[in-house]
Nucleic acid binder design. Structure first.
Length: 574
RNA sequence: GCCCUCGUAGCUCAGUCGGAUAGAGCACAGGAUUCCUAAUCCUGGUGCCGCAGGUUCGAUUCCUGCCGAGGGCACCA
């Protein structure tokens, strides 16, 4: 029952919004197979073939069916082709090729309908209801408030933000969250570090500590506290350190928030670890685990029986010193997430935490939410400047901050680079390369394509030429191979968005935008628009404004601006 | 020692559930602008898809082993 309902919902969604050509082909194939009394193979693949000469779309059904049906793939394909030729109207050509591929080419008129779709949808082009309104949380960055964000955090920030955009676009109810580790050992060290600097500043001769934060920003914070609280040395030391700690966290966190804003990244919720502790959520989580028989005490410590869940070793929740482990608050935190009603939780972590993933998965499973947590690991960013590696270490105070990098290369260029690579492979970030406004820099290639169209639209307005409305009259002027190529490219966009959202991989969008931009640039050099006569000009303006809308919709998903003039871009990276 | 990720063109990287002759950008060489922005376009060629087996109509893709790189195996965070 439920199944049937879903199927219907899916169907209407596909017809309206997903790749219409693909769906049309699939429907035709299904009907043909039914007529031939053959099943629909689960592993059927319908996709644009690598080479254009094989047509617009290609299906491998005949090869999949050949084995079970004990037939030759090519014979089967020929039979299918013959059936399809007699049944459907939108195909211009239906061919059998290679080992048994069934290749189809759509008629021009079919491609022209894309213009209606893009024009009608505008900025919403590519949107879908795939997520069915499910509540999803994306937690990302979550850097300890012990120093400014560095370039690696930037990669996670760009990814998390883009994923949220993708998930929203595909019909999910998304909430972005930043987990603030403001409890525990790191925070004690932070307080101590500021207190140390403060005492040194007041003239006390105290040697540096072994293990403390030594960045200049610590000195600055200490100096400000000293200025604002000249009598701080009259307080008991514990109270003074507490002031240092609180001031430091507040200031550093404010800086982090500012850096993220400048990078166009916004979290909906800033969740404090300390609040979790204060609200007794840790104890509640412990009780939960104990109730499930998954914890025990030994050697004065509280243990989580993760070996029951496939771990090779049980893990400590509360140390014999009474201190909580990171694991303990993470369990309580994730328990809280699901209590807040999220159907699905996505965490973005640095790849150095990958050993932690199975443990966290086990914990979530133990709490009854198996399969509802997805962890995405983001690999290291190695920062290069003039070819040489720039070292990064928060503790040592040597780092290239995100803010510095963004100021140097611009948010657009940084985001585009981060989002044009798979997150699980290491990334090389060459400051000079990313800063350069040239063709080595794909972001400008894409932005330029968008700006080019708007430049033409502006010129057209001056000349009194308006883009045509979609329809037969305009489409009669859009029959060149380049016209149709742009339509084909635009038609793929909704599928690209869906695939990127499903696989949580924004880089699919970046690569697609590169292709679409290339199509536009090629078109530009081959076809004049404004001087082509009023009717042709306005038909082409319609086509190109649809391309611009698609480019803008794609860039929006990456959080990269879609400028109407390129001189607006140069101000971004001064 | 055990576990995870990765290994694709000179460089940076794509390659979806196994499909047709493995792609793009950069770099290199040559060409295109009386006309909407040359931040553009066109033409050139390069691969033991780390190695060796296995699975099958077909493997860069899946399985096993090996080599190489990085990371992880705490009462650290």
């Amino acid at each position: 029952m439920l199944r049937a309902g879903n199927l219907v919902a899916c169907r209407s969604f596909f017809e309206g919004e997903k790749m219409k050509a693909k769906q049309y082909f699939e429907d035709a194939l299904r009907a043909a197979l039914t007529r031939m009394d053959l099943p629909w193979p689960e592993k059927t693949l319908i996709e644009p073939p690598r080479e254009r000469k094989f047509g617009d779309y290609s299906a491998n059904v005949a090869m999949l069916l050949a084995g079970p049906a004990k037939r030759k793939p090519r014979d089967l394909a020929e039979e299918l082709a013959a059936d399809l030729r007699g049944q459907s109207t939108h195909f211009e050509r239906i061919e059998v090729a290679g080992p048994g591929f069934l290749n189809v080419t759509f008629a021009q008129g079919f491609w022209h309908t894309i213009l209606d779709d893009v024009q009608a949808a505008g900025a919403a082009y590519g949107a879908s209801a795939l997520g069915k309104g499910r509540k999803v949380q994306v937690e990302y960055v979550s850097a300890n408030p012990t120093g400014p964000l560095h370039i690696g955090h930037g990669r996670g920030a760009a990814l998390g933000d883009s994923l949220a955009r993708l998930l929203r676009k595909t019909g999910h109810d998304v909430s972005c969250e930043y987990y603030i580790n403001d409890a525990g050992r790191q925070m004690r060290i932070l307080g101590d570090s500021v207190w140390l600097r403060l005492r040194q500043l007041s003239g006390q001769d105290i040697p540096d500590l072994e293990d403390f934060y030594r960045g200049d920003y610590i000195k600055d914070i200490a100096a400000r506290i000293y200025r604002e609280n000249p009598d701080i040395f009259n307080l008991p030391e514990s109270q003074a350190i507490d002031i240092c700690f609180r001031e430091a966290v507040d200031e550093i966190l404010a800086g982090i928030k500012q850096d993220l804003r400048d990078f166009r990244v916004g979290h909906d919720v800033w969740f404090s670890e300390k609040s979790l502790v204060d609200a007794g959520k840790i104890d509640a989580a412990f009780a939960d685990l104990a109730g499930r028989g998954l914890s025990y005490e030994q050697d004065g410590a509280l243990w989580f029986r993760t070996t029951d869940l496939g771990d090779d070793k049980d893990r400590v929740l509360k140390k014999s010193t009474g201190e909580l482990t990171y694991f303990a608050s993470d369990i309580a935190y994730h328990r809280d997430k699901f209590e807040r009603g999220f159907d699905r939780v996505i965490d973005i972590w640095g790849a150095d935490h990958h050993g932690y993933v199975p443990r966290m998965q086990a914990a979530v499973e133990a709490l009854g939410h198996k399969g509802q947590l997805q962890v995405i690991l983001v690999q290291l960013v190695s920062l290069l400047k003039d070819g040489e590696q720039v070292a990064m270490s928060t503790r040592a105070g040597k780092f290239e901050t995100l803010a510095d990098v963004v100021a140097y290369v611009g948010a657009d260029a940084a985001r585009f680079l981060f989002l044009s690579r798979k997150s699980d492979s290491p990334l090389e970030f060459d400051l000079e390369l990313v800063r350069r406004k040239s063709m080595d820099n794909p972001v400008y290639y894409v932005q330029y394509a968008h700006a080019r169209v708007h430049s033409m639209l502006a010129k057209a307005r001056e000349a009194g030429i308006a883009p045509a409305q979609p329809g037969a009259a305009a489409c009669a002027h859009l029959g060149t191979p380049e016209d149709l190529e742009l339509c084909r490219l635009m038609e793929r966009f909704p599928d690209i968005v869906a695939a990127a959202a499903e696989t949580l991989a924004p880089h699919v969008v970046s690569h697609y935008l590169g292709e679409l931009a290339a199509g536009l640039h090629k078109y530009y050099t081959q076809h004049h628009v404004l001087s082509a006569g009023p009717e042709v000009a306005s038909a082409r303006l319609l086509l190109l404004s649809c391309v611009a809308a698609t480019l803008a919709a794609g860039l929006e998903l990456l959080g990269v601006s879609a400028p109407e003039r390129m001189d607006q871009v140069s101000e971004d990276a001064a």
